[in-house]
């Protein structure tokens, strides 16, 4: 029974990772036509280094992802704290309304954003993509931080106040340090959401200003090259590190809260 369970999980993991592994492997294969036998080479990575179009796209992606992580984390954390601590009419409704955007198809969100940005004069470009990504990431940040907050006992802030802390000081001296793993985890998640985002970026990109996923898509339409594999492998590596970091921090946060 135990063996069966382990075998099944192995199968699922193979199903998940095999295509990705093949893609990454081909990034290191010398043949431009994906021909076997495998011959190790880093020439596609070297070719990347001189591909200005891809590099610019990569820089845009990184820029937007970092900015998204910072902005979405600030806004989302503040929203989570407000939803968790403050009592005001309509709070529960607001909390529930944060969830649907996660489930709305990106195609719809992207179309809506494009129309809205066009209509309001925000237009397209890096700034539009940033706004779109931040909007997309905020619900995730709220969810992650909210979970973290429910692990920080409220009487800790009360204790701080009884010792002379103003409400603001109590939050920054006690709650925030305990919440930090969750906040960083949320930032990593926001970063990953932005880095991997294609549909909305595609809608909001202008011909000269694109992100990496959009550029990869454009390149694929012209034909596959192992260079695509190489850049995808890098993107994949970054995403995986970020998400593993998120997982580790969420767990560390949980362990801290249980104390």
């Amino acid at each position: 029974m135990k063996l069966l369970a382990r075998g099944f999980i192995l199968l699922v993991l193979i199903f998940l990772y095999l295509p990705i592994a093949v893609m990454a492997l081909m990034a290191f294969n010398a043949s431009p036509l994906y021909a076997l036998p495998f011959q190790f080479s880093t020439e596609w990575f070297e070719a990347l280094a001189t591909d200005d179009v891809l590099l610019t796209a990569a820089r845009n992606s990184a820029l937007i992802a970092v900015a998204t992580a910072v902005l979405a984390t600030l806004l989302g954390t503040a929203a989570a704290v407000a939803l968790h601590r403050a009592r005001f009419p309509g709070r529960d409704t607001l909390r529930v309304l944060l969830l649907p955007p996660i489930a709305i198809p990106w195609l719809i969100t992207g179309t809506a954003m494009l129309l809205f940005f066009f209509w309001t004069g925000i237009g397209r470009g890096l700034h539009a993509m940033l706004i779109g990504h931040v909007a997309l990431a905020i619900p995730y940040v709220v969810l992650v931080v909210n979970t973290g907050l429910s692990g920080v006992r409220r009487d800790l802030e009360e204790a701080a106040k009884s010792l002379g802390s103003t409400p603001l000081h109590a939050f920054f001296a006690v709650t925030l340090p305990l919440l930090l793993p969750s906040v960083i985890a949320a930032a990593l998640f926001a970063f990953a959401v932005s880095l991997d985002q294609f549909v909305i970026s595609y809608f909001l990109a202008t011909p000269g200003v694109v992100t990496l996923p959009v550029q990869i898509y454009a390149a694929i339409r012209k034909g596959f090259t192992p260079e695509i594999n190489a850049i995808s492998t890098i993107l994949l590596g970054v995403s995986m590190i970020v998400i593993l970091g998120f997982a580790w921090l969420s767990k560390a946060g949980g362990a801290l809260e249980r104390r």
Partner: peptide, 20 residues
């Protein structure tokens, strides 16, 4: 007067020690 300006000492049921 808010709590922080009252100069009280309080011991909570769960102690509420700052874990960090």
């Amino acid at each position: 007067v808010p709590v922080h300006a009252r100069n009280i000492g309080m011991v909570f049921q769960s102690y509420a020690l700052f874990p960090h």
